[in-house]
């Protein structure tokens, strides 16, 4: 564990807590894409399949349970909780996210580190996470400006993988044989997809306006 990875995990945890705070306290999911949340639930379900078979640390298992529990409960809230579901913008959240799942699965079957069931699904979760934010970014463009909590959620979600990139650089130089091109490229693509969001997000900070 290094400070970049810890900062990344804490940023990721913060993004989840901000979203849960918004949905649970003000019972609103306005501006939040249910489709991105569904993709993230699939990402965690396929990435943490080894949660019961390979124990890394208490921290690792605890965080996996937090991410699994929060992603599925956010999907549940947005789909079935009456008050929250009413604030869901169904007409605008129309990105065909299932069209993202199949190509990621095919790519994972073609490009992976080991051809085993767990490894292919784990690789699939990396590819899917890289594009999982697309429905949210499309919804963002359609709803024009969003409330601060949603903006902070997206900012933190985009930042966590950027911190992981610093972690990979650190580990590459400090650990021999630490080379994982698939993880690195997927993480880089994922972070680059946030580029224009980060640009407008920082403009907001400078200008002090809402996120346009």
């Amino acid at each position: 564990m290094n400070i970049f990875r810890l900062a990344g995990d804490m940023t990721h945890l913060a993004s989840v807590l901000v979203l849960l705070l918004k949905i649970h306290t003000i019972k609103s999911c306005a501006g939040v894409s249910l489709r991105t949340q569904e993709l993230y639930a699939i990402v965690f379900a396929t990435r943490y399949l080894d949660i019961f078979t390979s124990f890394v640390s208490v921290y690792n298992t605890f965080m996996k349970l937090v991410f699994l529990g929060s992603s599925f409960s956010i999907v549940w809230y947005m789909r079935y909780h009456k008050a929250v579901h009413r604030t869901y913008d169904r007409e605008q959240d129309t990105f065909r996210h299932w069209f993202l799942v199949l190509p990621c699965l095919v790519l994972a079957l073609l490009i992976h580190e080991k051809f085993t069931f767990l490894e292919v699904l784990w690789t699939f979760s990396l590819y899917l996470e890289a594009v999982a934010i697309l429905p949210q970014l499309v919804l963002l463009q359609r709803t024009r400006n969003i409330d601060n909590l949603t903006g902070q959620y997206i900012f933190l979600l985009g930042g966590y993988r950027g911190l992981y990139i610093l972690n990979w650089i650190y580990r590459y130089f400090t650990e021999p044989h630490f080379v994982h091109w698939i993880t690195w490229i997927a993480g880089l693509v994922q972070t680059l997809l946030y580029a224009d969001f980060f640009y407008y997000y920082f403009l907001r900070f400078i200008g002090g306006r809402g996120v346009e």
Partner: peptide
């Protein structure tokens, strides 16, 4: 092997 050091991340 990859199990050693890339599965210890979230």
């Amino acid at each position: 092997s990859s199990l050693s050091n890339s599965k210890d991340e979230l």
